[in-house]
């Protein structure tokens, strides 16, 4: 009966994951490997293609005829280039803020989460959301680039590296993490449980009532351990390897927050989305 409960928990979290997150790993991998019936993503590999594609960023559906539209941009001037980079950064922020809401809805569906002290719910989310967003990006990435805009656009890693500093340094650590993380070959059912484990971390600073959080996490950890054994019978020590990723994640998040602070100082026209500002303030 206990194993049945743990399996039911895994099923419940997977269903909530499917309900709350628009682009699953299964769909992203199908797009990246060209095995989807939909059209291939629009590729952004330089400033010209970014200008062509930017009107579709954060659109769930690209009007297909526009794929072949050509802008007459022979050389993008540097001030225009700065503007385009900043606009792109703002659209990344809006998508991130939307994803924070998705993670929040997912957290609320974890059995027992809404019974925790409200202050602790806020603290758990504040510390977990960027970690979860970084893991959510991994299935969208391969060594050459990343899907964005719900899988409608593929942006190359080289292009992201060619942006001006500090934008150019921002995504490289996420690619390095993702390439390694993807080697674990987790699927969407594994990811759903892993997200819940991350959210229910009892060691976040400022928590008021740690015990009920640890109790909830222990239950999800048991469910994850059992699920990984059944889902990946040949993958040795997978449970331990997955948990180890949580340490790497904390460093990536702390570096990310540092990047954003640098940006705030160096970019006069930069305004940070209020929700992201709230999350990053006094985070690390």
């Amino acid at each position: 009966p206990e194993a049945a409960d743990l399996r039911a928990l895994a099923k419940h979290l997977y269903e909530s994951y499917l309900k709350n997150f628009p682009l699953t790993k299964a769909k992203a991998r199908a797009i990246l490997s060209g095995k989807t019936s939909d059209n291939a993503p629009f590729v952004v590999h330089d400033m010209k293609s970014l200008l062509e594609g930017e009107q579709f960023i954060n659109c769930r559906q690209i009007p297909r005829q526009d794929h072949h539209r050509h802008l007459n941009v022979s050389s993008v001037q540097s001030d225009l280039q700065r503007e385009v980079e900043l606009r792109f950064f703002h659209s990344c922020q809006s998508r991130s803020a939307e994803a924070v809401s998705e993670v929040t809805e997912f957290a609320k569906s974890i059995p027992g989460f809404l019974n925790l002290d409200l202050n602790d719910q806020v603290t758990l989310l504040k510390y977990a959301v960027i970690e979860v967003l970084i893991i959510m990006m991994a299935p969208l990435m391969n060594k050459d680039g990343t899907l964005i805009s719900y899988g409608q656009i593929f942006m190359t890693r080289e292009f992201l590296k060619s942006l001006r500093k500090p934008f150019s340094d921002m995504m490289e650590p996420k690619f390095e993490f993702s390439v390694k993380f993807n080697m674990l070959e987790l699927d969407d059912t594994d990811m759903a449980l892993f997200f819940a484990v991350i959210i229910l971390s009892g060691d976040r600073p400022g928590l008021l009532n740690v015990k009920p959080i640890e109790d909830l996490q222990e239950n999800v950890l048991h469910s994850l351990e059992l699920h990984l054994k059944m889902n990946h019978p040949d993958s040795l020590h997978l449970f331990a390897k997955v948990l180890q990723k949580m340490t790497d994640l904390r460093q990536i998040v702390s570096d990310h927050v540092h990047f954003i602070q640098l940006l705030k100082e160096s970019e006069i026209n930069m305004c940070l989305h209020p929700l992201l500002q709230e999350i990053m303030k006094d985070l690390y």
């Binding site: 309900k19 924070v100 809401s101 929040t104 809805e105 609320k108 409200l118 202050n119 719910q121 806020v122 989310l125 504040k126 209020p274 929700l275 709230e278 999350i279 303030k281």
Partner: peptide, 19 residues
């Protein structure tokens, strides 16, 4: 929670599926 007004609101909002 006052310094996290938006997060707080997101937590308290009932999701569309819950009516």
């Amino acid at each position: 929670t006052e310094r996290h007004k938006i997060l707080h609101r997101l937590l308290q909002d009932s999701s569309p599926a819950d009516g």
